[in-house]
Amino acid sequence: MSSLALAVRDSSTMLRRNLLHARRYPSLTLNLLLTPIMLLLLFVYIFGDVMSGGIGGGDRSAYIAYLVPGLLLMTVGSTVIGAAVSVATDMNEGIIARFRTMAIHRGSVIIGHVIGSVLQSIASVVLVGAVAVAIGFRATNATALEWLAAFGLLTLFALALTWVAVGMGMASPNAEAAANSAQPLILLPLISSAFVPVDSMPGWFRPIAEYQPFTPAIETLRGLLLGTGIGHNGWLALAWCLGLAALGYFWSAAKFNRDPK
């Protein structure tokens, strides 16, 4: 078997294993979904009137439209925490030693985690998106190409954050520590343009909010779905995604290739 065929075969076996875990124990994924959905409902139904006033919109639906792109990306950030947790769990189990002493593609266990996490992120985004549509979110003006680009952006963003989360999982001594170290992935959206425009933040803070990974991705997604201006945010988002993916990949690979204790 060629090494590529081996990689594909073993990685898909590992992916099946991860999806089986997710199906057997859906509570981890569902818990992670709770935060974005709760925030969505909170900001629309409780704070909605004030918030829509704040962004200069007329009624609550204007704020729903503003809020949803950010929450979809926050959903990605939240879902990949699951990858950090399950990678850390795996690394602490004897099963990883078994995989390392088998004649399989070495990276397949990690690739399985990454693809599994991206698929779960997409499923979560679809779920949160469905809730958003149910409470009145509409993106009827977006073209098919824009939808496709939006989907591509979400997938790429999920891939980038997953690699970072895998690195965090590798670097953590146990699952609890992994969950803690991955917290920034769900906290960063709070200081992005997800909830309020960057312009409304204090001047000293704006550069932080504007150039952190979430804001360019949120502005790009907003532009694709709602037709607002994207500007340089598209390139920034792409650069962040590729940069984070590479960083997470090399971090994970370095950790994984070290001798286990």
Binding site: R17, H21, T101, M102, A103
Partner: peptide, 29 residues
Amino acid sequence: RAKIGVTGQFSAVDGLITGEENMLLMAAL
């Protein structure tokens, strides 16, 4: 690795899936 089998001191089974699924995982690998 193609010739050896290893049973470590700490159980190397996947606790989240069933015994049969563990066996089928090995067969697939």
